[in-house]
Simulated scan of single mutants.
Amino acid sequence: MNELINFSLPAGKLSCFVGNLFAELETPCEKQQYPDGLILCGRTAAGRDAMLLIGRDSCTFIGSKEDYNAARNGRCPSRRCSFGG
């Protein structure tokens, strides 16, 4: 079941979140327009569909809460940063 989770992160941590969340990105052409920001669609590391709406001051995640929590608790694979979101 998909959940709708609103959150906010600084740009650097948001970059790590996106890297931890998506294993594959897909074109969002068939998705609803989001005039206030960026839409990222794809498959998570667990293979589930997810969508991330990135606005100026906040983000909305649409997908599995397990995938959201895994991305928030992830670490940078290169160990150059620690997300710890």
Rank of each mutant, 00 (worst) to 15 (best):
G55N: 06
C76H: 11
S82Y: 07
D49A: 15
F61M: 01
S78C: 11
N69K: 15
S78T: 15
N73I: 04
D57K: 13
G84A: 12
R80H: 05
A45P: 02
D49C: 12
R43S: 05
S78N: 14
A70F: 05
R72W: 07
A71G: 13
G74M: 08
Y68E: 00
R80W: 02
A46I: 08
D57H: 12
C81F: 08
A50K: 00
F83K: 14
S64I: 04
R79N: 06
D57L: 12
S78W: 05
F61P: 00
R56G: 01
G55S: 11
R56S: 07
G84R: 13
T60A: 07
A46Q: 12
T44V: 09
A46R: 15
T60M: 06
C81K: 12
C76R: 08
D57E: 10
S58D: 11
L53Y: 04
G47T: 08
P77M: 09
C59Q: 15
S64N: 10
T44Q: 04
A70H: 14
G84E: 03
P77W: 07
F83I: 14
E66K: 15
A50R: 02
F83C: 14
R80F: 05
F83A: 14
I62L: 10
D67M: 07
A70G: 10
I54D: 00
R48Y: 05
F61K: 00
G55Y: 03
R48A: 13
G74H: 02
R75S: 15
M51V: 12
N69E: 14
N73F: 08
D57M: 08
N73K: 14
N69V: 13
M51P: 01
G55Q: 03
A46F: 05
R48Q: 12
A45N: 04
D49Y: 07
F61S: 00
S64T: 10
G84H: 11
Y68Q: 01
K65D: 08
S64L: 09
F83T: 15
P77E: 07
I54N: 00
C81E: 09
T44A: 06
N69W: 09
A50Q: 00
R56P: 02
G84L: 06
R48F: 04
R43G: 01
D49W: 07
L53C: 09
S82L: 11
S82V: 14
A70M: 08
M51N: 05
C59S: 12
N73L: 13
R72F: 11
D57P: 02
G63L: 12
D57C: 09
N73C: 14
G55A: 11
R56I: 08
N73D: 15
M51D: 07
C76I: 03
G63R: 09
C81Y: 04
M51S: 13
G84P: 06
A50Y: 00
R75A: 11
Y68P: 00
S64F: 08
R80C: 06
R48C: 02
C81M: 12
G84C: 13
